[in-house]
Design a protein around this nucleic acid. Structure first.
Lengths: 116, 116
DNA sequence: GTTAAATAGTTCGGCTCCGAAACGATCGCA
DNA sequence: TGCGATCGTTTCGGAGCCGAACTATTTAAC
């Protein structure tokens, strides 16, 4: 477990990262879209539409549309599951991995810069 | 400065909190709206529309609409600046303070629960 | 082989958000 | 007093997201 973070520091960290995301302007992902993105990149595969929808407590169309949007942005891709062709497997991409890594760097930088 | 946070932990923390926000369902604030909200509650007053827009790098209508939405939710309120009646001062509310505090608790809980 | 269940995608009307531009109210200054 | 500048809001057309219901494809059960 990491060392303690005080309440004011937690909110400050959240504010600072959100601030960076808004100022950068590139990140116009919805909270739900970001939840899908991070789940795909942090949780072990395979990821299906239904699995993601159930895990996040949202409807299937939400996941489908999130994958559409993020697919257009190159952040994820889709592939038919050949073992069970009803399933669609969500796959990571190089662009997506870089975007997630950049987000991680942003969080770390803001965390390091937190005031005492 | 807080003790080190490793990259995987930073992303895991972000994912977990976003996950909570999505699952709770109550928090349908845009990134921009949340940026406005946290700025109002973490930065010292006074806060004007123009000031918030400039600070966050967004247009004025974005701030006006964010204040409309969050005002409807009771998270902030507006008051005319009597010293310069062109200005609108954004004010904190009890509901908003509680919502921000709840977000802070959420972040802290997820931070404490981070794996080594 | 036929039928029921499961999966992802699509359609529908409705709502919110977007940026640019225009607007009304207010102030500062000559 | 007038007039340009400043501030917040509103309007406009366009775009994206929403949930509910429906469709198409594939699998499993019998």
């Amino acid at each position: 477990m990491p060392a303690g973070l005080r309440p004011s520091q937690a909110l400050r960290l959240w504010h600072d990262v959100i601030y960076d995301l808004v100022r950068d302007g590139e990140q116009d992902l919805t909270a739900r879209q970001m939840a899908v993105l991070l789940t795909v990149y942090l949780e072990p595969p395979p990821h299906t539409v239904r699995g993601l929808a159930g895990r996040l407590g949202v409807t299937k169309p939400v996941v489908t549309r999130a994958l559409d949007t993020m697919g257009r942005l190159g952040l994820v891709s889709r592939r038919r599951d050949e073992a069970d062709r009803r399933n669609v497997l969500v796959q990571r991409t190089l662009t997506g991995a870089l975007a997630v890594e950049r987000l991680g760097d942003m969080i770390l930088a803001r965390h390091r810069a937190l005031p005492l």
